[in-house]
Write a protein that binds this DNA or RNA. Structure first.
Lengths: 342, 342
DNA sequence: TTGAAAGCGATACCAC
DNA sequence: GTGGTATCGCTTTCAA
């Protein structure tokens, strides 16, 4: 039998008004100790739980944040889901998850808005300018993580973004490789028009050019595993091979290293240096030793949640937050920390 | 300025009753072509979107499904998120995501119930019997994916489950290894009390014992990367090494192969056969060649959604669905299909 | 501090 | 087919 306990029933049992019940479950409302006790006892006895739907209807706050993503194969994104939900849960928010092909985002958005979400976080997908404005009109803050909104959307000041300092990251990579003495430095691009790729490549090229040693060769991997494999083969098919490769993200870097090691029997980093970009779990890079530019998921997610809360409370206008990044050496000696359930 | 358009306003503009607006947006309601047209025009002009929250309040159906998970490091689980959301979205449902430590599930559940979800899907986490009953009382179907509920909960017939045929899978592994001529066959267990591990190991041991060749050695990896590394070292530290290892899931199998290859300089499968279990993206196993028992995420998710819908409509009682599994050979030649955005 | 009463934005049932 | 009205479960004035 389906039991639905309402505040009415609790009130009846506790011999108080329904308002009193409501107040008891509203933090910071004025209820006497006496009443509160009676209410809680009755609520407990009946197994009462406030109906969040009814509350949202009247408060016009659902405490739901929509999270829109595309394919999760790049392990960076599951990490975002995990950290973001945890953080939001701790702040009393909940995450409504949407998986969407890159070109279907607009359709999905209308569903999202029906749920009166308090905010929208988008990762790995971009929003059309029109829809960004729709959200702005509806008063729903939109935050893009790891992507920067279109210029046009920016102008409307409709969406915010949280990214790492991709430009500086690109520069750091170039500097490091030059210091290590490399002179035949190649680049594997991700999605060519994505802000991440543009910025990383720009910083990278700037330093190389300034040093009088422009990028030796370039191929495009579209941020996909297969694309990166193809790109790697392409870069290394000639006799004069690169001695270092900057790969636009870790997901592709792993594919690249597979090809280098298995198909071409090259050793990383002895024969060729490989540098990646992102923050993915150790399980993802397994037995590889990989230099990578870390963009901390934790930092990005914290910034996202802060921004979200401020905007929900109308404290600030949309803007772009840039998180610093750093280069680290990963190797296959793993500390004991990762857990995966099967 | 925050625009909130209600059906009232649409009604006024369209010169019809508010009921007519409601009907227009209710599939299968009786509205004349004429009225519908007027309403849609007005709605369009105002940018009206039905308020799902208000609808849920009265229909007592939120069309929200809660998805509860633990750590996502095992790539099987992001895959579950992806496939499940996609399928549910297509059926007009939405996914409320909860990340929860294994021992906090009960606390999280009370939040879930406040949102009047139509159903709960749990992956990699188990529910206490008490809470399972709470859900049953609230009329909220609970489906566990890749885990079987406690016996006690089963008795109450409170929760359903979707699992693959772990027992048969275990048997298949043993048979295959025996056929290949292995006689020193080791096992790396996952979480020892998890239903997945128990069943896989049971089937595995049964065949080995019957063949007069019981498991050569055994270690526990707790379904974690580090645990599996430790377990592998343990299994191979003596002089008489196993010639094959069945690892209770792919996530651990990858860790095991790392240790075999890097620390012990053994070749897989030349020196030692490794067999895993699960269905994880190719990007996860990278350059390895791995034999594995596939439990299809797609199949499991489909079954979950079917079960969910039937139970929401009260058509059937909770029960356990078992999906057949199959053994396949994975190798590092990848077809072009996986995509990961950076 | 407390209770009565007015909504929040939709659906459902009712006559017409 | 259509419009009026009660209702869903809660928060929020407003008097008392």
């Amino acid at each position: 039998m389906k039991t639905v306990v309402t505040s009415q029933q609790v009130a009846k049992l506790a011999l108080v008004s329904q308002s009193a019940v409501s107040r008891t479950f509203t933090p910071g409302a004025s209820v006497s100790k006496e009443t509160r006790k009676k209410v809680l006892a009755a609520a407990n006895a009946l197994g009462y739980r406030p109906n969040a739907i009814a509350r949202s209807l009247i408060t016009r706050r659902s405490r739901i944040i929509a999270l829109v993503m595309s394919y999760l194969e790049n392990q960076f994104y599951p990490l975002v889901i995990e950290k973001l939900s945890q953080l939001l849960q701790r702040q009393g928010y909940h995450v409504l998850m949407f998986i969407s092909e890159i070109d279907e985002v607009d359709g999905v958005l209308s569903e999202i808005l029906q749920y009166q979400v308090d905010g929208i976080v988008m990762a790995s997908v971009t929003l059309s300018t029109g829809l960004a404005n729709t959200c702005a009109d509806a008063g729903v803050p939109v935050i893009m993580i790891n992507r920067v909104p279109d210029i046009s959307a920016l102008v409307r000041r409709a969406t915010s973004s949280v990214t790492s300092d991709n430009y500086q990251g690109g520069r750091m990579v170039a500097q490091l490789l030059l210091e290590r003495g490399h002179r035949r430095i190649a680049f594997i691009a991700g999605l060519e028009n994505s802000s991440t790729n543009l910025e990383r490549e720009r910083g990278f090229n700037e330093v190389l050019s300034t040093a009088g040693c422009p990028a030796f060769r370039r191929a495009v991997g579209h941020y996909s595993f297969e694309g990166a494999e193809q790109a790697t083969r392409e870069l290394f098919k000639c006799a004069d091979r690169p001695d270092a490769v900057f790969v636009a993200n870790d997901h592709m870097a792993i594919a690249a290293m597979d090809v280098l090691r298995i198909e071409l029997s090259l050793s990383v980093p002895r024969d060729v240096s490989v540098i990646g970009f992102d923050d993915i779990p150790q399980a993802a890079w397994g037995s590889y030793s990989l230099t990578t530019v870390i963009q901390s998921v934790q930092d990005m997610v914290s910034a996202t949640v802060d921004l979200l809360q401020q905007q929900i409370q109308g404290e600030i206008d949309p803007h772009n937050v840039v998180i610093p990044c750093r280069i680290v050496e990963r190797n296959s000696v793993r500390p004991a920390q990762s857990v995966g359930l099967g």
